[in-house]
Amino acid sequence: MQRGSDRLSVHRDEEMKHELRELLRSGHPTRTEEWHDPEPTADDDPELASGPVTPGRAAAPVEKVQLELGRLLGRTPFPAGPRELTGLLRDKHAPDVLVEALERLPHKARYTTAHELAEAVVRVG
């Protein structure tokens, strides 16, 4: 049932859907103002823009692993051991390579900061 408050008729709505279908499927921006479109990634953007940083990749620097751990762990209270942190990472669906690197750490070790943990992960990984 129509309320009468529509600007266009049902037929015009269907016609507009048909006109826009190909434009929406094309994958091109649909906005007329260029400033509304998101900027593409730059060549010097960090690797985080293209996916998770894991210690299994070629020479992952401590800073990148620390950023990934910080992103996944959030406000995790430190000091913490690898067992606690491994469980948290699994709950957050962290990359398996990162979780496996934490599992290889000594079980009795305690880490006071994410940076200290990242250094240990890079050494082991």
Score class of each variant (00 low, 15 high):
36 H>Q: 07
26 S>A: 10
19 E>P: 03
26 S>P: 11
94 A>Y: 01
88 L>W: 12
45 D>V: 10
78 F>C: 00
44 D>P: 06
121 V>H: 00
15 E>W: 02
14 E>P: 07
14 E>T: 08
57 R>E: 07
104 R>H: 07
22 E>F: 12
64 K>A: 09
28 H>Q: 12
82 P>Y: 04
93 H>L: 14
69 L>F: 01
86 T>M: 05
57 R>Y: 04
113 T>E: 05
56 G>E: 10
24 L>H: 15
7 R>V: 13
58 A>G: 09
59 A>F: 07
95 P>S: 01
7 R>H: 15
4 G>W: 06
55 P>K: 06
118 A>I: 05
19 E>L: 15
62 V>M: 02
35 W>D: 03
84 E>L: 02
49 A>L: 05
5 S>G: 12
20 L>H: 13
112 T>R: 13
95 P>F: 01
125 G>T: 09
2 Q>F: 02
41 T>I: 06
70 G>F: 01
16 M>S: 11
124 V>K: 01
51 G>N: 11
64 K>R: 10
18 H>L: 13
40 P>S: 09
58 A>N: 08
111 Y>A: 00
77 P>F: 07
35 W>I: 09
119 E>R: 07
96 D>W: 06
118 A>W: 01
93 H>W: 11
36 H>R: 12
103 E>I: 02
109 A>W: 04
26 S>R: 04
29 P>C: 14
72 L>P: 07
2 Q>N: 12
92 K>V: 14
31 R>V: 14
41 T>L: 14
72 L>Q: 01
100 E>Y: 00
104 R>L: 07
1 M>T: 13
71 R>P: 08
88 L>C: 10
96 D>L: 12
75 R>M: 08
49 A>H: 10
75 R>L: 07
